[in-house]
Write a protein that binds this DNA or RNA. Structure first.
Lengths: 339, 339
DNA sequence: CCTGGCATTGCACAAATGTGCAACGCGCTA
DNA sequence: TAGCGCGTTGCACATTTGTGCAATGCCAGG
């Protein structure tokens, strides 16, 4: 089929027009919804296009409509269970509404979020979704002024320019405390990381506040970057002391998995008999038979859906500064003993 | 800063030129490496650009040099540990050579790979990397004829158009057999999935061949889609019989995790005392204390690097049909007992 | 002081597409 | 058969950018 054309470059509408014996406008109209073309020329054009392997150039099209169809997703640690699931959900929804995702990985150097924002502008993306990291405010304003949607996820800092989507971390963390408290636990540890991400901090705070209200004191252990290793290390530190905690709230499932493994492998403890654990995120591993972790489910589907709803409102300005907060529901499994 | 401009749309070089009091060409040259601009006008232009929040339009730029800088990554199940790590590695390397990744998620309907290829052409991507799925040959040819690099990963089917990167699955699988054989295991099961992916099939075959050469017979269990659940189910099926296998080769680490959990939780077995297990991929969970899985490491870094090397050769035709195969090295942990 | 050379600048055109406007042709009606 | 109207088509211009070419201006050397 397409081997007819020897040249190694993309086919233009002009070439299709010549082969079909019509004007270039006719080709353009054939591929534009709602344009007026007779059935016969349409057929001629489609045939020629098929033969040459023609595909409309979206880049050129975007020049005219200020609408590239591109949505930039900016994030770090995209190989993490939570982030990769989020990415999966978002890319699917975007495709369902005829957008395409451009992924910019900001793992590594710290100023790469800024570079990512620049890319967003360079490619005239319709929207920028920031999954992690702190973008410079000035560039955010440039994006908004350029007519982009800017959507911040899991950033509880209250900027008024961009739209934001968050999870009720504080509420869930309070609930986590009560789950453990009702199970009879009094010496409770909070396992977190050195990342200092807004959502993690919100979970720590929420838990501490609830504990304080109940007259308990909890301390936070931060043994490294958010992940299995830091959880394991925290377990080592906390459980080797003379006064072992009866329970732990791990602000992330990965931390929880590491923590549980340390308890079992290093100290021979049983969960939940000797130790109750509550996690957060409900990653796939939380449901594995080895963990059966009681945790809070990230409303990933809702987040992804809300992003697309925002994008489908034509005017970014109308939703600017809008804030959506979704609920993380508890998922009861086996790491908290029943009352 | 950029609040000076009230309009909600992208700034063009024309506007910058007017503010700076120079011609549009001067603006263009300021942002083009190697073009001739005096230091004074360059400064004026940069100032005006900063003030207006101007960013070069890569879409328009791409119209001229058939070079969009976009690389399409097409894949399904991107929330899977192996795929998300691959995605992470590739996006990083691409950014390092000034390309940007467009991710197309083909989970879901089966003909979406075809739609993905179309997107690749629509956006004039420089290259298309297929991480999973089977693209229609005719569209592949269109891509190649259009001057794109087409890179197939983990597809052992021997097409001669696209470039391909594979892993020596067969060799590794043979080695897996010998690891278990040397450990004294004779009744060995192969745990796979119903996916029928070329690489999984290659692993099954390699293992079976090596077993046959050693005078052993192995059967393959396929209890669902590739993942933890299918591994768990396979464990249930295989270990409830009267003749339990002494060892299992799971063609994927996820399958191995599920299999091990079934053995431990459902049948109270110990690994490796009662059962040896070998996996494949070396996902992060394989190194977790609960599993300590002996497995084979996917050469992810090498794959990502090779992609960029291919992209940096100017002419796709020169490397067309090229084939690279990387080695998956064994990672010894604790699920195979020492001789 | 004149002239050659060089760096710089602007004009105009190129790239691929969408679209308003005018013209064209066909069919139907009076 | 003439005329009206409507569907279709092509021209020309718009979108934003890079670049060849010619012109301009400046500096230095003779």
């Amino acid at each position: 089929m397409s081997e007819l054309r020897p040249g190694r470059s993309f086919v233009s509408a002009q070439q299709v027009a010549e082969l079909a014996g019509v004007s270039r406008s006719a080709v353009s109209r054939t591929f534009t919804d709602g344009a007026s073309v007779s059935e016969t020329t349409r057929k001629k054009v489609l045939e020629a296009a098929e033969q040459l392997g023609y595909h409309v150039n979206h880049l050129a099209r975007s020049l005219i409509h200020e609408n590239s169809g591109i949505v930039c997703l900016i994030g770090a640690d995209i190989n993490t269970p939570y982030h990769s699931r989020l990415l999966d959900a978002i890319t699917r929804r975007l495709q369902a509404i005829n957008r395409v995702a451009m992924v910019i990985n900001t793992s590594g150097d710290s100023d790469s979020v800024e570079a990512a924002l620049r890319q967003t502008l360079n490619y005239r993306a319709n929207a920028t979704v920031v999954l992690s990291g702190t973008p410079p405010a000035s560039l955010i304003n440039t994006c908004i002024n350029s007519g982009q949607h800017v959507i911040l996820i899991n950033r509880d800092d209250h900027l008024d320019g961009p739209e934001s989507i968050t999870v009720d971390n504080g509420v869930a963390a309070r609930e986590a405390f009560h789950m453990l408290h009702r199970a009879g636990c009094r010496r409770i540890a909070v396992v977190s990381s050195q990342a200092g991400t807004p959502s993690l901090v919100a979970r720590e705070r929420g838990f501490q506040l609830a504990a304080n209200e109940a007259g308990l004191d909890v301390s936070v252990t931060r043994a490294g970057p958010t992940g299995y290793g830091a959880g394991f290390e925290a377990g080592r530190l906390l459980l080797s002391g003379s006064e072992r905690p009866e329970a732990a709230f791990c602000v992330t499932d990965l931390l929880a998995c590491g923590f549980m493994d340390a308890a079992r492998v290093e100290f021979g403890m049983n969960v939940p008999e000797d130790l109750c654990v509550v996690g957060f995120d409900d990653i796939e591993q939380a449901s594995w038979a080895s963990y059966q972790l009681t945790t809070f489910r990230q409303p990933i589907a809702q987040i992804a859906e809300h992003i697309t709803t925002l994008l489908e409102r034509e005017d970014p300005a109308s939703v600017s500064g809008g804030r959506a907060c979704f609920h993380a529901a508890p998922v009861w499994r086996r790491t908290v003993r029943p009352k």
